[in-house]
Design a protein around this nucleic acid. Structure first.
Length: 275
DNA sequence: ATGTCTTTGATTCAAAGA
């Protein structure tokens, strides 16, 4: 099973590119972020025509996440409040549409668009840290449900200096501050691993290149789009690739897709009742 | 460093967010 994540920066603007990439790659699951569209205007028919089931959580203009799957999507959960009904902060932190998950072949696929934070002095940065703390509480509940977890998305954090193009300048700033990195580590605990780093330890592998300052032409990107797996899935991973070529498209998203390949198939239990 | 792209909303642009 291949699971992909791609921040498309408007699914309507990028529709032809996403369709072309799906036709070429045919991953079982594609998680989209920054769809930037309300649910009624989401172009679901274009994906259904390719055989994908579509579940979405969107809003006007900003944010928005979607899950596309060739395999059945079960037990769809939208927002933090789905797992944190009594949490005082979860409803407020779910107003921005950034969280959707579903069960696919026995795997809990969790698709996230982590807040950007803007700058260290912004109230959006405080929101980002509160949001990550809420994600930590959310995952504690998810863990009790016992399903293998594949958590993907745009994390808007470079976890280590090797994930940044110029760490001397950038470490400590937005997307690379100690508080953001520590908040992410608390989310991961000792349960979740960054599968890209199982296969590649070098710097210079990026998933996002700013539209500004010729970042793409100078190959000055960041690795902020990640796939995290619990050990039961990590042991099935046979590769994790960043599809960098899409960033060179006409009118590209500023992010490239990241894809993990898992040698996974749930051993279906047949119903022996009445035998 | 205000660089670029997307969306919205109010009149062919400017603002906001990333």
């Amino acid at each position: 099973m291949r699971i992909a994540t791609w921040n498309v920066n408007s699914v309507r603007t990028r529709l032809d590119q996403v369709v072309a990439w799906l036709q070429q790659e045919r991953p079982e699951v594609l998680c989209l972020q920054e769809t930037k569209v309300t649910d009624e205007l989401f172009p679901r028919a274009a994906f259904e025509a390719l055989g994908y089931q579509v579940v979405i959580s969107g809003q006007k203009a900003y944010n928005g996440v979607a899950l596309l799957s060739l395999l059945p999507l079960d037990d769809v959960q939208v927002g933090f409040e789905a797992l944190l009904p009594g949490d005082p902060e979860a409803p407020g932190l779910s107003e921005q549409k950034r969280v959707i998950s579903a069960l696919v072949d026995g795997v809990r696929v969790l698709n996230l668009y982590v807040p950007n934070g803007s700058s260290l002095s912004s109230e959006k940065y405080a929101y980002k840290l509160e949001w990550l703390a809420c994600l930590q509480r959310y995952l504690a509940v998810q863990e009790t449900q016992g399903d293998p977890l594949c958590m993907v998305g745009d994390f808007n954090i470079g976890p280590e200096d090797r994930d940044l193009p110029d760490p001397k300048r950038q470490t400590g700033g937005i997307m690379a501050s100690q508080a953001e990195r520590e908040a992410l580590q608390l989310v991961l605990g000792d349960r979740l691993s960054d599968v890209f780093r199982v296969f590649e330890s070098d710097t210079g592998h990026w998933s996002w290149w700013d539209y500004r300052s010729g970042a793409w032409d100078r190959d000055k990107g960041w690795r902020i789009d990640h796939i995290y797996l619990t050990d039961d899935l990590l042991s099935c991973a046979t590769g994790c690739l960043i599809h960098k070529a899409t960033r060179g498209n006409e009118q590209p998203s500023d992010h490239a897709p990241v894809v993990v390949n898992l040698a996974w198939s749930l051993e279906e239990e047949t119903d022996e009742n009445g035998d």
